[in-house]
Structures are given as C-alpha cells and as structure tokens.
Measured scan of single mutants.
Amino acid sequence: EVTIKANLIFANGSTQTAEFKGTFEKATSEAYAYADTLKKDNGEYTVDVADKGYTLNIKFAG
C-alpha cells in the first residue's frame, strides 16, 4: 500500500491537501477522480507530478 499526496491549489490562492491510499494505480486514479469532481466549481486543472508520482500538485484555473 502506498499513499499519494495531492496538493490542491485553487485560483483564489487557498490550498488543501488530500491523501489517497491503496496500490499506486488505485490511489493515483482516486486522486485524479477527486480533482475531476472539483473541476465543476473550480475550473480546469493542471497537474505537476513530483516525488516520482507520489505527490501531485493540482492547480485549478478558477
């Protein structure tokens, strides 16, 4: 089991951190699915992958 950390960075400057656990593939998939649910209210997003994929910096356009 691994932990994927998602740093969520919103257009208004606020930030939030979420963690997803499971296999690497499952946790990564859940992180992207979570970002997709936030897209409606926060706009499109870009992802900067860090720490060999264990950290995702997800920035929303607003």
Rank of each mutant, 00 (worst) to 15 (best):
E1L: 06
E1T: 06
E1H: 08
V2Q: 07
V2T: 11
V2S: 07
V2Y: 07
T3G: 04
T3S: 12
I4C: 02
K5R: 13
K5N: 13
K5G: 04
A6W: 01
L8Q: 01
L8A: 05
L8T: 03
I9K: 12
I9F: 12
I9Y: 14
F10Y: 15
F10C: 04
A11S: 09
A11R: 10
A11Y: 11
N12K: 08
N12P: 04
G13K: 13
G13P: 01
G13E: 09
S14L: 11
S14V: 13
S14K: 14
S14A: 14
T15K: 12
T15A: 15
Q16W: 08
Q16D: 14
T17E: 11
T17H: 14
A18Q: 14
A18R: 15
E19T: 11
E19C: 05
K21N: 15
K21V: 15
K21A: 12
G22I: 01
G22Q: 02
G22P: 01
G22W: 01
G22Y: 02
G22R: 01
T23E: 15
E25N: 08
E25Y: 05
K26T: 14
K26S: 15
K26P: 02
K26M: 15
A27S: 05
A27E: 01
T28M: 12
T28L: 15
T28G: 03
T28H: 09
S29R: 13
S29P: 02
E30A: 13
E30V: 06
A31R: 00
A33E: 13
Y34M: 09
A35P: 01
A35E: 00
D36M: 05
D36Q: 07
T37P: 02
T37V: 12
K39Q: 09
K40H: 14
D41R: 10
N42F: 15
G43P: 01
G43L: 03
T46S: 10
T46V: 12
V47Y: 04
V47R: 02
V49W: 10
V49T: 11
V49E: 08
V49M: 13
D51I: 02
D51H: 06
K52R: 09
G53L: 03
G53H: 03
Y54W: 08
Y54I: 06
Y54G: 05
T55N: 06
T55L: 13
L56Q: 01
L56I: 15
L56V: 06
L56N: 01
N57M: 10
N57D: 09
K59G: 05
F60N: 00
F60K: 00
A61Y: 14
A61L: 13
G62V: 08
G62C: 07
G62N: 12
